[in-house]
Computed example of a mutant assay.
Amino acid sequence: MTMESPAFADATSAREPVLSMRGISKWFGAVQALTEVDFEVFAGEVVAIVGDNGAGKSTLIKILAGVHPQDAGTIWFDGEQVSIPSPAASRELGIATVFQDLALCDNLDVVANLFLGREISHGTLDEEEMESRAWSLLRQLSARIPSVRVAVATLSGGQRQTVAIARSLVGEPSVVILDEPTAALGVAQTAEVLNLIERLREQGLGVILISHNMADVQAVADRVTVLRLGRNNGDFRIPDVSYEDIISAITGATDNVVSRRADRLDRAERLDDADRLDGGAL
């Protein structure tokens, strides 16, 4: 079941998504992790993917990151059907993924982390140009980093997340995926990361946010896609949906034994009322 407001459908029908997934399915042996999942993100939009543990969020993201190939379905990027056989292919396509572990080297400074594996060299490493570009990337995000020459190990959790997000921008992507970016962060550091997400949207990037924190989702997302048991279970514009609606879609609270029994009783009462009215008319 996919729920989408008419207003959102009208607003987006006139433009093409930068990234679109249609009918995505994935098996791991006998276990089906995803079943015909649809998903899309537009330029300048933050879309949150939410769901309980085992809902398929990580699998969907790993397909986009080139970690796992889908077993069925198609992926479209900038209006063209594409395949993503590897992480390198994902980056070349214009998709940058910041995983929850950040994959930073604590013993290296900010510059070295930003350009690790993509160093700028002209015979020898051009440290000056890399440092200049590092500051430029951090300014794009309005980041608060004391120096690009300090070891990453000395930075706070929010600053480390900033470095990881800045590194994702080195390849000038069109879509940035953030996997639980505020997990284990304090209030101030969380606010700092949410501001970074706002900066990414202002730059016209499509942002995919995976989060268990509904407050964060409602603070920065334009739209939320709900996965449940590997299937779509709702697509909502944030202004049109309540916290309770999102939680109900995540947990399946609107589709359980109690609700089904209530529906049966309600239908039975309506039938009884209809029979009485028919009897009275005769």
Rank of each mutant, 00 (worst) to 15 (best):
T2M: 11
E4K: 09
E4R: 13
P6L: 12
A14Y: 00
R15E: 14
E16Q: 14
P17V: 03
S20A: 15
M21G: 11
M21C: 15
M21Y: 03
I24A: 07
I24L: 10
S25N: 02
F28Q: 05
A30G: 13
V31P: 00
Q32V: 04
L34G: 04
T35F: 09
D38V: 05
A43P: 05
G44I: 11
V47W: 05
V47R: 15
G51S: 07
G56K: 13
K57P: 10
S58A: 12
S58K: 13
I61L: 15
G66S: 10
V67Q: 04
V67K: 05
V67E: 10
H68Y: 15
D71V: 09
A72G: 15
F77A: 12
D78H: 12
D78Y: 01
G79T: 14
Q81L: 03
I84C: 04
P87Q: 11
A89M: 08
S90V: 03
E92K: 15
G94P: 08
I95T: 05
V98T: 07
V98E: 10
Q100C: 11
L102A: 12
L104M: 11
D106M: 14
N107P: 00
L108E: 14
V110D: 04
A112M: 02
N113E: 08
N113M: 10
R118L: 01
H122I: 02
L125T: 15
D126R: 14
E129T: 12
M130P: 06
R133G: 13
A134P: 03
A134T: 12
A134I: 04
W135V: 09
S136C: 01
S136L: 08
L137A: 08
R139C: 01
Q140C: 04
L141C: 10
A143L: 12
I145Y: 05
I145D: 05
S147H: 12
V152P: 06
L155R: 10
G157R: 12
R160A: 03
V163R: 08
V163G: 10
I165W: 04
L169K: 11
G171L: 13
S174C: 04
S174P: 00
V176R: 12
D179V: 04
E180L: 11
T182K: 08
A183I: 04
A184N: 15
G186C: 06
Q189K: 06
A191D: 13
E192N: 07
I197E: 07
I197T: 11
R199S: 14
L200S: 07
E202N: 09
G204L: 08
G204C: 07
V207F: 11
I208H: 02
I210D: 01
S211L: 06
A215C: 00
D216M: 01
Q218T: 02
T225P: 00
L227P: 08
G230M: 02
G234H: 08
D235R: 14
F236M: 09
I238R: 06
P239T: 09
D240E: 15
D240Q: 09
D240F: 03
V241H: 04
V241N: 06
S242M: 02
S242W: 02
Y243L: 05
Y243F: 11
S248W: 00
A249Q: 10
T251K: 01
V258K: 06
R260N: 02
A262H: 08
A262P: 00
D263W: 02
L265C: 00
L265E: 15
R267N: 04
R267S: 09
E269M: 12
E269V: 02
E269I: 02
D272Y: 01
D273G: 01
D273W: 03
D273P: 00
D275Q: 14
A281N: 07
